[in-house]
Design a protein around this nucleic acid. Structure first.
Length: 456
DNA sequence: AGCACA
């Protein structure tokens, strides 16, 4: 021991719950390791086919004593540990845990998690997905869902393994198929695809609603920033995301609310109105075919307000949020995706369901006649106005302030309108409102203000 | 037969 090298060759190694196995057949698979080791305890991790010859492996026990039991057993056993007839040499590893470089998506399984990047939802139909993957064998089932992406790029497939072994498909629809069950009911509205116009009870085609509004901005004399849009559209509810872009030489914006109801109220209230007095920046609103925008969290052209900037902020968001708000928000969406059902393999971080879809008034959205949410005072409401006025001085010449002098809107955004709480907590959704006084308006302005400003 | 992975 005068030389300080080769310490790992000593059999005086300190015990570890990780064991190092040598002389394995290179074909050895994880199941064989588990077979060999599990009589001694619970195996929490393995790594096989290690080393240049792929004939080594590591096994991690839940408990140190289990590893000790295995080492001591084979140290005195007349029957050596064997895999496929080869004697396996077992020692304590010099590490105390197996670092698994492989994420959950790397664990092989029969279900693939496919992420299609750089396309809008619905651009790649389920039939196309089926066709592509059928090239490699019979596709049993497909379930699709939308997930906010970090970035937009060209159309690429990212494929990993899902943690699921089976998909629970409830309907055949444009979002999900079960090719093994011909008797599965078809969701008649969903199978058509959400690009199809819906037909109302009167037989007339009605505009397909969405929680995302497309705003075309006409006569854009003044800059319309994300902040200005946020201020304007927050008057009707929580604005989740905004994206501004150029199209056909004009400026358009997408404004995402948590639900269709809020978007509808905003659309009706703002359609044809101007952000600035004097006919500047006139808004034309329609429903987008998007239900969830893929936007940069913070840029000059986009904002994602759903990304919590602190844990505290996340806690301030409404409790009791439905797991998958988009399901009931979109009348065309099939009702078979209760949130995390397909969220295996790290497809959806836990925050993506509850944290991402703050819907502050689920009772109203569910169409129930009464509000359960407690009416309260809104200390932020006067600030909502002042934030509007701030834009007036900051971004427009001559003190023309956003939405301050344009008919119905100005009456609620005016100091008088805001300082008088007109909140009527038991008003039915869709009930007739006093002209220019929407209960959504005042309450949601203040709430949104509090939320967005406390986050900065 | 003798310690992975970035």
């Amino acid at each position: 021991m005068s030389t300080s090298g080769q310490p790992q060759f000593r059999y005086t190694q300190t015990p570890s719950k990780v064991l190092h196995l040598r002389n394995l057949p290179w074909e050895c698979i994880e199941e064989e390791l588990i077979e060999l080791c599990k009589p001694f305890g619970k195996i929490v991790n393995t790594k096989c086919n290690v080393g240049a010859n792929r004939n080594q492996a590591f096994v991690e026990f839940a408990d140190l004593n289990q590893a000790i039991n295995m080492v001591t057993y084979y140290a005195s056993s007349s029957e050596p540990a064997q895999v496929r007839g080869k004697t396996v040499y077992i020692q304590y590893s010099n590490r105390h845990e197996i670092v698994n470089n492989k994420g959950p998506g790397d664990v092989p399984g029969n279900v693939l998690l496919v992420t299609i990047e750089g396309v809008e939802a619905g651009d790649v139909s389920i039939d196309v997905i089926h066709l592509v993957f059928s090239a490699f064998g019979f596709v049993h089932k497909i379930a699709t869902f939308e997930k906010a992406a970090e970035h937009v790029g060209s159309c690429h497939l990212r494929i990993s393994y899902s943690a699921h072994t089976d998909l629970n498909i409830k309907f055949q629809s444009h979002r999900s198929r079960d090719y093994t069950n011909p008797y599965l009911p078809v969701n008649p509205t969903a199978i058509e695809g959400f690009a199809q116009p819906a037909v109302g009870p009167d037989g007339k085609k009605k505009e397909l609603e969405s929680n995302v509004l497309l705003a075309s901005i006409e006569n854009m004399q003044y800059a319309v920033t994300v902040d200005v849009l946020h201020t304007v559209f927050s008057a009707f509810g929580t604005v989740q995301k905004i994206a501004i872009f150029e199209k056909n030489g004009g400026t358009q914006a997408l404004i995402q609310y948590p639900d269709v109801t809020t978007a509808a109220v905003a659309k009706d209230a703002l359609e044809g109105h101007c952000i600035y007095d004097g006919g500047y920046c006139k808004l034309h609103l329609s429903y987008s075919r998007h239900t969830d925008l893929n936007v940069k969290a913070y840029s000059d052209k986009s904002r994602d307000y759903t990304i919590p900037e602190s844990g505290l902020l996340a806690m301030q968001q409404a409790p009791g949020v439905p797991a998958a708000a988009t399901v009931w928000q979109n009348p065309q969406a099939s009702p078979m995706f209760p949130g995390s059902e397909f969220a295996g393999g790290g497809a959806m971080p836990a925050q993506s369901s509850a944290g991402r879809v703050p819907s502050w008034d689920p009772n109203m959205q569910a169409g129930r006649p009464t509000f359960v949410s407690v009416p309260r005072t809104f200390p932020g409401q006067t600030y909502a106005l002042s934030s509007v006025q701030a834009y007036a001085s900051a971004s427009t010449p001559g003190g023309s302030s956003p939405l301050v002098q344009s008919g119905q809107i100005s009456s609620t955004m005016s100091p008088l309108g805001v300082s008088q709480p007109v909140h009527q907590p038991n008003m039915r959704p869709g009930g007739s409102l006093p002209p220019g006084q929407s209960p959504y308006y005042v309450t949601k302005v203040s709430r949104t203000w509090v939320r967005s400003h406390t986050s900065q």
